[in-house]
Amino acid sequence: MLEITGLTRRFGSVTAVDDVTLAVPNGQMVGIIGRSGAGKSTLLRLINRLIDPSAGRLVFEGRDVGALTGRALRDWRTDCAMIFQQFNLVQRLDVLTNVLVGRLNHRSTLSSLFKLFSAEERALAIRTLDRFDLAEAALQRADTLSGGQQQRVAIARALMQEPRIILADEPIASLDPRNGKVVMDALRRINREDGLTVLCNLHTLDTARQYCDRIVGMRAGRVVFDGVPAQLTAAMVRDIYGMSEEELDQAETVTSTAIEAAPSRMAA
């Protein structure tokens, strides 16, 4: 159980996350929706502690993780793996090393520095990659893969951490719909098969409805909706986005055509 109580983060005079309270039971798949700038990303970064909260409490399994430092903080970060919109792989390293990077907190610094990963770790990396049909690409450089493949490598890296929670920050926003589906399927699989809690920022309502057990709507840093997909009425959508779902779809189409039209290296 991840309990968030009154979590707040201010940047200067701007309050990015404003008094957020949520309780997420283990194994739930939660979609967080809202306009860009609503504080979704900041919320996930606060949970992983890439950003420190200005106020509020963060408790996981009865352990206060809001004030950890040093070794304990790194352990907590290992427990809640992050997935990024831009995949954030090391482009010049091969896929295998990118996945093994997920083990860094499980081993000594010295052996890491010389890249001395054990046979077990390598085998585990291959097995994890194999779950997403990427074992054959293990020795390719990350930048030779398509966006969808890179995001699945990132998911494999996250799994190598042996985490309890997956925090996915707009995991499919840089992908075309087909690759987006493959990645969302992968996220649901690890949610169902490994029993991991998944917190996922999403910009498309359809995806959230289709994949998530629970949807959290945010506006201006505050939680304005929290319930199952069926409860997300047209009025609620208007409240979260400030526009109707049709208008939202339209705006969405405009942006996605813009994305497709732009020469994108992710689409290779």
Partner: peptide, 10 residues
């Protein structure tokens, strides 16, 4: 971006 990712991985 990779720096972020590694910090986030602990």
């Amino acid at each position: 971006r990779p720096i972020d990712a590694l910090a986030a991985a602990g």
